[in-house]
Amino acid sequence: MNVIVELEKPLTELEAILRDLKNRQRETQGVDLTPKIRELEEKAQQLRAEIFGNLTPWQRVHMARHPKRPLALDYISRLDDFVELHGDRTYRDDPSIVAGLGVLDGIPVCVIGEQKGRDTKENLYRNFGMPHPEGYRKAQRIMRLAEKFHRPLVTFIDTPGAYPGIGAEERGQSEAIATSLKLLAGLRTPIVVNVTGEGGSGGALAIGLGDHIVMLQHSIYSVASPEPAATILWRDATKAEEAAKRLRLTSDDLFEFGIVDEVIEEPLGGAQRDPEGTIGKVLAADRRAIERLMKLEADTLLDRRYEKYRKLGSHSELVHDRAAR
């Protein structure tokens, strides 16, 4: 159960009434409903501020998982053009990763996105956005195409993590992620990354090492999804809420750490309240980054990428080496 969906129920009900009133206003000229509508609109606005004004980390996790939140394909379908390419040429096509050739505002690009489903049936097909090794190997094909044809790579991150299952292990989930990371590390073309939903662990980073990282305000990004993090830390997945609080996984945190370069503000109540506008803002940010990065020589680009991650860390020299003496 999504806690945001629960939380926003009174608001959703109020908004339904408002829609109804507005329709009636349009259909029947006789009665003036304007004062009533204005009153309810004010109330809705107040309710929105109350509900969404100060979300806890756990609520933000659920915002990132909101069933109506725009998904990778919603962004991709807003490109000027897109042709999806399938399969890793070795084992199978993994529907939890969508990849292909596209055009972003006149610029030819290669695109990789992690795709969740909207309902149970779709989610089973998309494996809840949790890729298998063959998904990452399909992504690698697209990374190589981007380099070969000198076009920027644009990725959309939205996954609880790489799939932890028997087949995934047998086919080398570690190797698939490791090789993706190494490819991105040396890719001689600009890489623009969008964290649009959940950024869970190595499964997210496997398409997330890049030159410019954009994150939606209510997306999350962490070393592991709260549930597996709680399992790893305390052997108890039910402590996910506590893990969410401790992991510092919000866009504010990520920006403060210097991991994310740009945070895109969402409407009060989340991207799903204005999908068109939000998608437009994200794609515009990508376009600006691409334009800037395309001016750089490939060697400069790689040096910048190296330095960007080289300085991420928190450590110091121990002055008195107590353990040594």
């Binding site: 190595g202 962490s222 070393v223 990428r305 080289r310 860390g313």
Partner: peptide
């Protein structure tokens, strides 16, 4: 694996080491 207590900073060490491996290669 990655150290949970260092969160996403620990995750980014995967990127940092991958870049170093790539450069050496």
């Amino acid at each position: 694996g990655a150290r949970m207590e260092e969160g996403v900073i620990a995750l980014m060490q995967m990127a940092k080491t991958s870049l170093a491996v790539q450069r050496l290669g």
